[in-house]
Design a protein around this nucleic acid. Structure first.
Length: 206
DNA sequence: CGGAAGATCCACT
DNA sequence: GTGGATCTTCCGA
């Protein structure tokens, strides 16, 4: 049963971005802290950003600045960016070729190390579902992921993707992406994927 | 070199 | 439902 902790190879992400976003649902994200503690979460919500051809993507039209460099690394690398003066968001670079495609990890369900994550999020023990990692910035805070991980490879400690438990199509809900209203037509593309009705998915539920 | 906006979250009404 | 917190990054002048 510990197959669930098998590391996913970088090639997992070397497929069309939407496919990767869909397939990441149910997978594990593992963070090993310096003191040896393992934090594990199960991904329940993702968003695909297609890159050059996607107005909502930070790589739209080949946009390439220092901040965005890691979006053009090979599939399976991390792209971590800072938003709103106080939050970090974690993406998995994805796609068959480097075109700036990536999957934003939006929400997850704590599996192991809940106590520690609760501390990282400055919550009381009575955290409700979604409080710990029910949002992209919450997820980063819970796992202590920041710009240090920008450009890191997600197939090795201290931060990696693991097999977890793939989900059936019937469990997957799709919808438009969050917070990209400025992106014109691309704003309506159904590139948000989530586990249907799952308590840890952020709002609004797709 | 200044200003504005941002793939967010939370507290408050 | 709304606005404030907070600061990096980038673009235009």
């Amino acid at each position: 049963m510990d197959d669930a902790r098998q590391i996913l190879p970088l090639t997992f992400s070397a497929r069309p971005v939407q496919e990767v976003a869909r397939d990441l649902l149910g997978r594990y994200l593992v963070r090993e802290l310096a003191d040896g503690t393992s934090l594990i979460v199960r991904l329940v919500e993702t968003e695909a950003y297609l890159g050059i051809s996607d107005r909502a993507s930070h790589a739209f039209d080949g946009h390439r600045t220092d901040r965005v460099q890691s979006l053009y690394l090979a599939a399976g690398h991390a792209y971590v960016y800072f938003v709103y003066g106080m939050h970090f968001c974690l993406n998995v670079v994805a796609g068959v070729t480097p075109e700036g495609g990536a999957v934003l990890l939006r929400a997850a369900e704590p599996v192991e190390g809940i106590e520690q994550m609760t501390v990282h999020r400055s919550l009381q023990r009575s955290a409700k579902p979604g409080d710990i990692a029910g949002g992209p910035a919450k997820l980063c805070a819970a796992l202590q992921v920041d710009r240090e991980f920008d450009g890191a490879q997600l197939d090795r400690a201290p931060l990696y993707l693991a097999c977890g438990h793939p989900v059936a199509d019937g469990e997957v809900a799709r919808g438009r992406r969050i917070g990209v209203e400025y992106a014109g037509e691309a704003a309506g593309w159904p590139l948000r994927f989530a586990l249907r009705g799952h308590q840890h998915v952020s709002r609004p539920r797709p």
